[in-house]
Amino acid sequence: MFWGCTIPARFPFLEKSVRTVMDALELPYRDVDGFTCCPEKSLVNNVDHGMWTLTAARNVALADELDVNVVSPCTGCVSNLATVSSDLKSNVAKREEVNGYLKEIGKEFKGKNKLQHLVPFLHDDVGILKIKNALKKNFRGMRFAIHYGCHMMRPSHALRNDDPLDPKKFDNLVNNALGAESMQYMTKLTCCGQGLDRVDQHDTAMDMARVKLRELKSLKADAMVLCCPSCFLQFDNNQFLMERNGEKYNVPVFYITDLIGLGMGYSVEDLGLTSHRVDITPFMEKWHHMECKRDHKEELHDELSSMGTFF
């Protein structure tokens, strides 16, 4: 598991949520000694492209050495590692230069194992059915706005895990594993804009957050569900800053494993949800009052499946 910097430093409760769900699904994973920053693109690549490449290559080399696949709950980490990895695999001269440096610390970049974000990992490797079956209560009747997180699937030549302009996997998890409705909304694929907060443009970052929050407020979304600590910072923390100034959107923000965990029966405390800034109480109340009844669609599906009809 590649945790990155932001989750352990700023949002350890997200780490708690991911670990709780990984453990409950009995997925074998390990922490890796020696992983550094992925490294982050705007703060590192803009200053020194060579060191950006070399640091990512060293991280991948650590996974190579242990012969493990890498999964990260941070979209930025996966995207940066995959971008460098794909670059080095296609550029022999650059790879040799990088490996020249790595040799001096006893490492070698091979890039032979999978690099995946947690969402495609849950979708492809764990499977919708396993997650669905692990839930004690699903989210039928709730409307979730997915925020994809740009770097989960872009750049697609490096990540190759979903359609970069019309992704489906996160939707599949929300619709078919959680049993909720993934809302189709105009700004669904728009970047969160948190990057602006890293380059001294806080006011513009807030404006970018408002683009999505305004739409979701008007559509009465029950929650926003996302898969990246940077997007979480943008929509939970920055929404909270707006609230303090009297600007209310009331859009609770969840990381994907928060909802899987709740459905499995873990409490708000178990999953670290008490650390979220935007109040999740109205969401929890609504969900608790939802009946666990199977709807017509589901009954029809089961009936047809039992007749041997596949979907």
Binding site: A9, F13, D31, D33, E40
Partner: peptide, 24 residues
């Protein structure tokens, strides 16, 4: 080698394991 240090008091409260070695 990183952009933030693990938040130790919060980790303890959440009962999270010791962070892996930093590679610094």
């Amino acid at each position: 080698g990183r952009l933030g240090e693990p938040a130790m008091p919060a980790r303890k409260k959440l009962n999270l394991p010791e962070p892996a070695a930093s590679g610094k």
